[in-house]
């Protein structure tokens, strides 16, 4: 990819914007189409685009594979943890009324935000993990076969 200067410059510009868009989708999911699942995928796409246009090593300098593995687990932990915290407040599992007892619907907002964050982190981690697993495998066939 050394000679594709247009691709390289455009990708450099776009990667930041894609990450920004992912955050918008993540935290604006209450108001418009979007949420953790979509945001996680878009976030992963930013790193994947970088890895495809430059190379895997450079992408893994920004987001090492072991970090991606941990993100995948962390998201599920955030999700489950939200439920456990609501139980600690004396409510049932995943009852977000716990987070603001006087005003249930505000509690719901906090709960939805936390849970969607968990989903987003897991999906980012899993998509990157899968991508890294596939691309770090050494091909056993030559490039001439294309």
């Amino acid at each position: 990819m050394q000679h594709h200067i247009v691709l390289r410059v455009v990708t450099k510009l776009l990667c930041g914007l894609i990450v920004l868009f992912a955050f918008y989708v993540q935290f604006h999911g209450d108001y418009s189409p979007g949420g953790g699942f979509q945001a996680g995928v878009i976030m992963a796409v930013a790193f994947i685009a970088y890895a495809v246009v430059f190379n895997l090593e450079m992408a893994q300098k920004v987001m090492p594979a072991r970090v991606a593995h941990k993100l995948a687990a962390l998201g599920v932990l955030i999700y489950g943890g939200t439920g456990v915290v609501s139980m600690l407040f004396g409510y049932t599992f995943l009852d977000y009324g716990a987070f603001q007892p006087g005003h249930p619907s505000h509690g719901q907002h906090w709960g939805i935000l936390a849970v969607e964050l968990g989903v987003g982190v897991t999906v980012t981690g899993v998509m990157l993990t899968i991508f890294y697993a596939f691309t770090s495998r050494v091909p056993s066939i030559s490039d001439e076969e294309w």
Binding site: G29, D30, Y31, S32, P33, G34, G35, Y79, G80, G83, F93, L94, Y96, P104, S105, H106, Q108, H109, G111, I112, V115, E116, V119
Partner: peptide, 21 residues
């Protein structure tokens, strides 16, 4: 109950939170 404009998000994260977990 939820006061969130996007009903899909409300159901996904709150009413059916177990499902999404």
């Amino acid at each position: 109950e939820i006061d969130v404009p996007n009903i899909v998000t409300a159901i996904l994260a709150s009413y059916r939170g177990f499902d999404t977990l």
